[in-house]
Design a binder for these strands. Structure first.
Lengths: 207, 207
DNA sequence: CGAGTTGTTGATCACATGGTCAATAAGAAG
DNA sequence: CTTCTTATTGACCATGTGATCAACAACTCG
């Protein structure tokens, strides 16, 4: 029973343990990232996880950062490729409200509460939120400059968008309403926020 | 050491235990409502809490309902007294984003995640959300009928408002930005959503 | 004052948590 | 093949969780 695993270089083992933790966080949330669950996921003894990680709080914070940074990078990719600000924003919203993103949403919402007893996690939450806000602000600013959006304060509008994204996604966790209706609802809201004509953004997202 | 408490009628003891649980939920969140913490809060032996409550999951769900229903009742009170729809909404927002409401916010956000392993809680979360949506829809509908708001679909706008309320409050949990800025930001958003002239709602809330 | 009802206690159980550490054995080096 | 380094194990500890239950004692009634 003692030869289930082989001996591996520390860097590789460390990566495997982190990967196992991230997978658990995506599947069952940050609160499911436990010493023993991660050990089982990596097919390793519990003690080895403790050996490669300074503390579980730290591992949870790292999982949060990796998962949400990956999402943000993906969003930035969209923002870099789509031609016009309106199209960029439309595609961004379609991506963020994709139903298959429930895992990331759970990570976010749990992070908000776990952050109260995990200061390192809280700090990273604030960091990633800042970067989200900056990314949104950039699109909104470009749209305003190009005359596509009719807005006064891009910074504030970016804040509105982020608040709405977080709020609607969080509500989805308890399966409050069918996911299909959410993206349409948000599209109408955004059109209103940005002063574009009705249907403009939703058409862009579909096409 | 065994005569700290006196003998009380079951109804009163039961109420005391529930009150202690609610106080803990408000002070430290739903996740802090434990068998022993509630017992200590009610100055009672742990076994007595278990005796008066069918399960801790149940007690947590009850705490959630009592706390959020009280908030909703307070909001309904506002909606019933203020003269015009615009004033009602302005006061509602001022109340909901009051910084002293952090406790209720924490209860909400924890409920969204705890609901995944506490089905009774999840059901009550959906119920209270439905009632919130109905209350908001009512104001928005009245404002549209009175010509104060320039909107097409009151149901959808109510959804927007609730999403924004939840989103901005949740973000406040990690102290992302100073609370003072949030209410102003929301005011501007709502003016945009409802098609009122800039500053209309914020002026109403201040006066 | 004595008997019976019942509100209340606190020890106890089974389980889960993060973390530690001596013992083990796998793989490299000689 | 032997030696040595070190990755790895799994038992162990202290703590915390929800829940159970026999024993206790406070109050009521006769």
């Amino acid at each position: 029973m003692s030869r289930a695993t082989s001996r591996k270089p520390p860097a590789q083992r460390s990566a495997e343990i982190l990967d196992a933790a991230i997978k658990i966080a995506c599947d069952e949330g940050l609160s499911a990232v436990k010493l023993r669950s991660v050990a089982a996921g990596a097919s390793v003894a519990p003690g080895l996880v403790a050996h490669y990680v300074s503390s579980m709080d730290d591992l949870v914070a790292t999982c949060f950062e990796r998962i949400t940074r990956a999402e943000l990078d993906e969003v930035r990719e969209i923002l870099a490729t789509a031609p016009t600000p309106a199209r960029r924003l439309a595609q961004l919203l379609a991506t963020v409200f994709d139903a298959t993103r429930d895992d990331v949403t759970l990570v976010w919402v749990e992070a908000w509460t776990l952050g109260r007893s995990n200061e390192r996690l809280a700090a990273r939450v604030r960091d990633v939120m800042d970067d989200w806000h900056a990314a949104l602000r950039e699109v909104v600013e470009a749209g305003a400059a190009a005359g596509e959006f009719d807005i006064a304060d891009p910074d504030e509008v970016a804040w509105h968008l982020l608040g709405m994204i977080d709020g609607l996604n969080a509500q989805a966790l308890v399966h409050w309403r069918p996911a299909a209706t959410r993206s349409g609802v948000l599209g109408h809201l955004v059109e209103r926020l940005l002063g574009t004509e009705p249907g403009a953004l939703t058409r862009l997202a579909a096409g």
